[in-house]
Amino acid sequence: MSYCVNCGVELETSIKKCPLCNTIVINPNELQTDTEAGNGELPFPNKVGIVEPIKRKDLAVVMTVILVCTAISCLLLNYLMWKSNQWSLLVLGFCVLLWVMTVPPLLIRNMRRRIMMLLNGVAVCIYIALIGIFTDSSYWVVDLGIPIALIVLVLVEIFLTVATYKKSFGVLACLFFMETAVLCISIELLVDHAFQQPLEIKWSAIVLTVCTVITVALAAMFSRRRVRNEIKRRFHL
């Protein structure tokens, strides 16, 4: 029978420190006999319960069946009825794209967001290339479509990587504005290059200026702990 010297409550025999004030339970008599407090049977087991994972395999199977059926039906219609061109390849590509975007996250538990985004990005690039091949207009695919998709992919990957290791709202907000500026500049330069115009930064300079001002202001605010705490307090949800 032990009592907490601070709180005055009687503690259950297995308790090693008072759960109210964290004072360690020491029985001076038991110290001499080399025994410690907290030898009683635990009121709760040590085993931590884990929530059973939700089985999403069924949904993945249904999605796969729907997409496969759609693709096969279109292929058959294309080769048996409307044979004018190979339009079914576009539908097939789109089905593959949808499958890549929806099914792996259902099958693989705790799939990393970065890996998922990478898969999605690659699938989008392949689909853009497919459209280029089908429409026989590869110039915009090579000069605009795939480069813009790749830049977006790289920027999203950077953002997700930083978000994984750095949870700070300030850092993520600064990164978001800087990436927006980088994306706008890249798009403008790529458009200039595609239309064989001199590489110049025009409208994206405005975005760059606005984003830089916001980023510097945010960095200045969030770098000071006092201001940061004040903002946290004022804007807490």
């Binding site: 709180c7 409550v9 259950e12 109210l20």
Partner: peptide, 25 residues
């Protein structure tokens, strides 16, 4: 933190009520 619990049970002890504590912490 268990401050609310601490103040609650300490008050009851001060009132002269015997309190026996069990926990899963």
């Amino acid at each position: 933190e268990s401050d609310a619990e601490k103040y609650f049970f300490r008050f009851l002890v001060k009132e002269g009520i015997h309190v026996w504590i069990e926990t899963n912490r």
